[in-house]
């Protein structure tokens, strides 16, 4: 995992929608900002799973494709 070096605003794709992030936003910060802290969710960045334990140390960079999913009813 690389150290956080980004200092400029990052534009990411979050669940298919564009979103601007403050500089140095980590994946954990994003989850908190969305009100999803403590929820049973899973996060994928650029098609790679980011384990919950690593969200805090994972910086988000310009152009990242982020998916945050949860369980819903289905058969």
């Amino acid at each position: 995992m690389t150290a956080m070096t980004a200092t400029t605003e990052a534009a990411i794709q979050l669940n298919g929608e564009s979103r601007a992030l403050a500089p140095d936003t980590s994946a954990a910060d994003l989850v908190e900002q969305l009100g999803l802290g403590g929820q049973r969710i899973a996060v994928e960045i650029n098609e790679e799973i980011v384990p919950r334990s690593r969200l805090a140390e994972t910086p988000l960079a310009d152009g990242d494709q982020v998916e945050i999913v949860h369980a819903i009813g289905g058969g």
Binding site: N15, L34, G35, L36, A42, I68, H70, A71, G73
Partner: peptide, 17 residues
């Protein structure tokens, strides 16, 4: 159960399945 994108915005944090 199925796996889908979370709601973003006002529905976030509501009880889930």
């Amino acid at each position: 159960f199925a796996v889908r994108r979370t709601h973003l915005g006002e529905a976030a944090g509501e009880p889930g399945l």
